[in-house]
Simulated assay, not measured.
Amino acid sequence: MPAPAQAPPAIRPARRRSLAPGKRLPASRLIGPALVLAVWAAASAAGRLDPTAIPAPWTVLRTTGDLWTGGTLPTDVLTSLERAGYGFALGLSAGVVLALTAGLSRVGEALIDGTVQLNRAIPTLGLIPLFILWLGIGETFKVAIIAIVVYIPIYLNLHAALSGIDHRYVELAEVQGLSRIRFIRQIVIPGALPGFFVGLRLGVTGSWLSLVVLEQINATSGLGYMMFQAQNYGRTDIILVGLLIYGVFGLLSDSAVRLVERRVLSWRRTLSS
């Protein structure tokens, strides 16, 4: 009798390779700064860094404690936060209003977009001498410069997001008979939120970047003023204290915006999620 035919071996389906970045690492944004701090500490302990040029991390930490205990650092921190907060609030309001006006109206776009693009091409810090002549050398010109630095990226990204909304959604809203208010609330705002948050993150960072320069111009308090005074006395440890505080504020504010963005846009499926 002929031998029974054997069944062909089962073919296992090839395992599909995932192209996504993978799961998010816990506290992933702190790994890079922690690595830089570790290298800094190791180089200082090994004597590879000149302590007069780049003090050791423990020296900077001790200086921070002395400044905080002396009462000067809390005052400077609160002053810087107040300036950045006022400027950011004004810039955020101006950027959103101008972007909505230009993005939802052809007349508004004709009146606003060209002016904003011209303003973007002018170095904002180059406006400082003119604003001092207009507004004086007090707090007003500092807040105005911060507001300009903030509103430009918010306007650009929000306006680009509004302009990039697919026209098929507009046609669908017209077929459904949506009013203009419902069209803005149900289609325009959800479609423009991702671009808005990109501009918001850039605006938050810009407020700190401009603040460090502005606080060295006719200021009597603030982190920038503290660093300027430390430069006159050759205190690099105090300068590093100011820079680290600016960096921490920038990281915390950016993380806060990211957290809000993740909650508001939880319906999106992206690589980061």
Rank of each mutant, 00 (worst) to 15 (best):
V213Y: 06
L111M: 12
F141C: 03
S266R: 09
A144T: 07
L35I: 12
T75V: 13
V248A: 04
V170D: 12
L67G: 06
L49M: 07
G70V: 13
D76H: 13
E109R: 12
Y86H: 04
L111E: 05
G164N: 15
L244M: 14
Y246H: 02
L25S: 11
D166C: 03
M227C: 02
S105H: 03
L104W: 12
V264Y: 06
A102Y: 10
L61T: 09
A53G: 05
I137S: 12
G222A: 08
G65I: 13
S273V: 13
L30H: 05
G32C: 06
T69A: 15
G222H: 08
P13I: 06
T59P: 10
M1G: 08
W68R: 10
T75M: 12
V107Y: 04
H167T: 14
V77K: 06
L133T: 13
T101Y: 07
A99S: 09
I184D: 10
A84F: 00
P55C: 06
S221I: 07
D113T: 15
G250P: 00
L252I: 04
R24F: 05
Y225Q: 09
G177Q: 10
L98V: 03
E139M: 01
L135I: 09
I31P: 11
G70D: 15
R258A: 09
A94L: 07
I154H: 03
S93I: 10
I152Y: 00
